[in-house]
Design a protein around this nucleic acid. Structure first.
Lengths: 326, 326
DNA sequence: TCGAACATCTGGAACGTTCCAGATCGATGC
DNA sequence: GCATCGATCTGGAACGTTCCAGATGTTCGA
């Protein structure tokens, strides 16, 4: 049953007996405790190295009741927006001496819920959720076990969950204002999303259109070929898509239809992912300060671990990034 | 120090005393052991549910010496090729009742080595490595603690590490043969890679060119603007890029330069990622059976856990996927 | 010279499981 | 009526750490 190669891994006791001291002393020495003489410490370090000792995080976590490890739950590995947030969370965690373990669960709510439980059962000290698909009640329950922060999604008022988000409504308004300033009036919004962020962006679009006196021009369409085809035929001069992925679709569609971008059609996205930079022409889009999101998320978790009880919801101001597609 | 909300989580003992039985019985009941009477089992399940009991994976792992958990190490979250492999590993692991924890470490060798150690220290039963940046000696050492399989990269002969890879040389040859059959002679290879897969693809390209009697046409250039510009000026009629990411760059460059693809320039990639499907025109590329890679990787780990001692290196045959860019 | 203070080290309990060896008890076979 | 058996349950050791309470030995001041 055990692998053929399985020499049982050395423990503190092995190091201790090899060095002729007690296991407690080995533990102290390896953790750099002050009350260990320099000579002994060095001898112990050498022996530990020689026998290939590595501490068991499992045992340590069990004893200490904390793991120095954060869990990150992510639903999509193929949306750069999510993965870039995770990367920024990792960077921030590392600065705090914490490490991050990722659990991935597609858009399957049940599976995502399992992954949340798994991270908690493993002893994660906190959870960063980068997914709008994890059911909120699962997170509320999770928050009773360890601090939870949602990134890119705002939690319900008194759920026990913190959140870091950008102001999607305002971001959408920035886009509309930009297009209006460029002289556009027929500005359509392309979205397929029923997720909170998508809804907020749509609301922001509609409000900004009304504010610009363009109530009659409000037009929301799905990103499917038929709807897009109709859109391009009816004199629409600018399209604001709910995210970069869908903006790129619109772009491709317009170029295939022989339209010149941005002269005949302006296209704007949201998220400022690598897709926007890579697109031809490069996409105008909305930037969400993802690096700040990561570090704020980690900061919020640490505050909770230090005892904060009230929920905190941070909202970051988005910035318009103008490129050549508008 | 402990969070204000911290009610210590219930343990087996709590459930046991609430149900008026021993902790051993609770353990047996929750794990579905046969020797527990139906009546008691049910009572225990109810009580466990009521007090919100969840087993500690940490304690279980410590006691059992195995975690039912695989670790996956990945260096880049933004290359769809890697993330799609991870997704296929996850699917395969789930079928075996194992879960997968991801550790991400960019292209920082030191950090990746740390992540490998962390997964092992946490008790991962096996490691899937989807990164060419983890130093091989780190993996060789890791393989003494738990089975390790590399995906998309072939291990050294007797390292104790298994691998699942595709035949990059053959894949590159397929591309060249396809282009030759289409009448191309000036076929250049675009690559920037010093990684094993990149090198093998280049070797395959060169060999296939020679086999087609095109020794004089062998041309390898870096994917930078200057080199690409020169390439497009000198009558090159087809470009084979080392992966889809770079193929898309070539595509953009060619289109920007006013070339028609595929009429004036054929472009072919490698990996068959979502990028290839999305590109305009859609990219001809090489498919690597990523789903098979994931399930073979998990299968190899399981065999090791069951005692296999010899290294196994699986090589899958790649398939050409012809789309409209060639 | 003696106790105190300090530096250094040790033993054992505890963390929450699993699992082995055995306890308990009613039913069964003879 | 007695040993045996099976079904059901229990106690305690063990996994590899950490950490507390204390042991040991050395040095110092008076």
């Amino acid at each position: 049953m055990p692998p053929a190669s399985a020499r049982p891994r050395p423990t503190l006791v092995d190091v201790a007996s090899a060095a002729g001291v007690s296991k407690s002393l080995v533990s102290l020495a390896l953790r750099g405790d002050a009350g260990v003489s320099e000579r002994t410490r060095e001898r112990i370090l050498v022996v530990a190295e020689r026998v290939g000792y590595r501490p068991s995080l499992t045992a340590r976590t069990l004893k200490q009741g904390r793991s120095m490890m954060l869990g990150a739950v992510i639903s999509s590995l193929d949306n750069p927006y999510h993965t870039e947030i995770v990367a920024s969370v990792e960077a921030a965690a590392e600065d705090s001496g914490l490490s991050v373990l990722l659990a991935h669960g597609s858009r399957d709510r049940g599976r995502l819920a399992d992954r949340v439980q798994q991270l908690l059962d493993l002893g994660a000290d906190g959870l960063v959720v980068v997914s709008s698909w994890v059911p909120e009640e699962v997170l509320v329950a999770a928050a009773r076990r360890a601090p939870v922060v949602m990134v890119g999604r705002t939690a319900e008022p008194v759920s026990g969950i913190d959140s870091v988000n950008n102001d999607d409504e305002h971001g959408a308004a920035l886009v509309v204002e930009h297009l209006v300033a460029r002289g556009h009036r027929r500005i359509a919004h392309v979205t397929s999303s029923t997720r909170p962020a998508g809804i907020a962006r749509r609301r922001g679009y509609e409000a900004a259109m009304r504010a610009a006196g363009l109530d009659d021009e409000v037009r929301v369409v799905a990103p499917d070929p038929v709807a897009l085809g109709a859109l391009l035929d009816d004199g629409t001069s600018a399209v604001f898509a709910r995210n970069d992925v869908e903006a790129v679709d619109v772009l491709d569609h317009a170029l295939d239809a022989g339209l010149r971008v941005p002269d005949e059609l302006a296209v704007v996205g949201y998220d400022d992912t690598v897709l926007a930079r890579r697109a031809r022409p490069a996409l105008t889009t909305v930037q969400q300060q993802r690096d700040v999101m990561g570090s704020r998320a980690v900061a919020l978790l640490r505050e909770r671990l230090d005892g904060r009880a009230e929920d905190v919801h941070e909202v970051l101001e988005p910035r318009l990034v103008v490129r050549s597609s508008s």
